[in-house]
Amino acid sequence: MSHSHEQHGHGDHPEHLGHHWDNVQQQFEASKLGMWLFLATEVLLFGGLFVAYAVWRGNNPELYAYGSEYLDVTMGAINTTILILSSLTMAMAVTYAQLNRQTALLVCLILTFLGACGFMIVKYFEYADKIQEGILPGAAFYEPPANLEASKYWNPDLPIIDRETLLALRIQEAEREREGRPAQIDRPRFGEVSSVAPAAVGPAGFDPDAVRARHVRGEKSNVHPLQDPNRPINAHMFFNIYFMMTGLHGIHVLVGMIVIGWLIYRAALGHFGSDYFTPVDLGGLYWHIVDLIWIFLFPLFYLI
């Protein structure tokens, strides 16, 4: 696919300069603008999930308070540190490329790559732990863990509290609380009870205040959520958004590893130097956004 080059072999053009550009500077600036636009789309891609997070958290804050106790803050903190350090080495790589220091460039890129690997390894342990415990998104959350012996939360002496039981418990409690108070909705009607089933689930159907008040922050959970009578309704929702967001971020880290691997390959061949470092610069920008997104994810899921 290089016929354009063959046809227009302008002698003064460096090899990496496209035929439609006037000079290297113009091409570099255009590439950089393109990369920033791409990063904007990445921000909006994650933006959708951040908005979903905000909406759900606004509607069901108790789920987030509850669910985050099953995440390992230490592992999250290690991963945060790893990513910040790898961003540093990436930034150094760009500088070394600009300074034409080939060996330092290569070392920094390899360090960045190792950082990415480290992040994925820690992520692997976190995910493996969740899968083993059966703490999963959606309906799978309500299946007991496959290997009961290996689970550190599971207590064979406790019963499973399924959604129906939990719902009944909550309704009982809510009714007990409501006793003595005047009915909130007092519309004139001369019939029996409505045939429409009460919407006990869903955004309009349940009063979360009671659950929120009951749940005390800061006590490290040692009960399996499926056996926990204090579990809020729809506790799986937290893990939906947790897996969606960290999963999508994980995919971006994997893509980042491919990009950095390719940069290492080209740097080893000596393609980059002070006159041409666009790919290192753009790869760096991408890696920083991946890092930046994690810096938001860590407190949103692990800390608050």
């Binding site: 933006g47 998104p137 309906a139 799986h236």
Partner: peptide, 23 residues
């Protein structure tokens, strides 16, 4: 550039929802 990524993530959520019923 600014709107289409949001469609992308929406469709991803929808596909995951349909495939795994995560609710």
């Amino acid at each position: 550039v600014l709107a289409t990524p949001v469609l992308g993530i929406t469709l991803m959520l929808l596909a995951v929802e349909r495939a795994f019923g995560i609710g």
